[in-house]
């Protein structure tokens, strides 16, 4: 977590834009929450799921952040998506759902509650980032 699923029409967002959106989402999320970068997951989905708009940002985050921060985060994510893809405002919407941090383990550790991340957690993030780079990711 966080996990951002971008529902998009088939073949509407080329690879370079998908990569740019993923980087932008990581920047937005980490800038807003202070979360480690390697914990930000972004997936693009071209399936036929129906949403309110043709493009939809479906986020799943740890519970416990203030409502104002969550609203700003979603707004910034949608802005970032539009900046990269050029999609108009009426064509993209989104939501952020939340679940308890303690229900998930990532990198072999139970996720900490927002605001309770330890130094060990950030060291862990660095290790994952190095592993990603070594794997070509």
């Amino acid at each position: 977590m966080p996990f951002y699923r971008c529902a998009v029409p088939k073949e509407s967002v080329p690879y370079d834009q998908r990569a740019a959106v993923a980087k932008a989402f990581t920047d937005v999320h980490c800038g807003s929450t202070g979360a480690p970068r390697s914990f930000v997951h972004v997936v693009f989905d071209e399936s036929d799921d129906r949403w309110d708009t043709p493009y939809f940002v479906d986020g799943a985050n740890r519970a416990g952040r203030p409502e104002a921060l969550k609203a700003q985060l979603l707004s910034d994510l949608i802005d970032a998506f539009r900046d990269v893809t050029g999609v108009s405002a009426d064509q993209v919407s989104g939501r952020i759902t939340e679940g308890p941090a303690s229900w998930t383990m990532e990198g072999g550790m139970v996720l900490p509650e927002p605001g309770e991340e330890t130094a060990e957690w950030y060291e862990h993030d660095e290790r994952i980032g190095q592993g990603q780079a070594a794997a070509g990711g």
Partner: peptide
Amino acid sequence: DIPAGFGFRGGAPSTTSL
């Protein structure tokens, strides 16, 4: 499966399973 080029972690291509 997440198709190749459709999954990212930390802004880079992902090798992560869920």
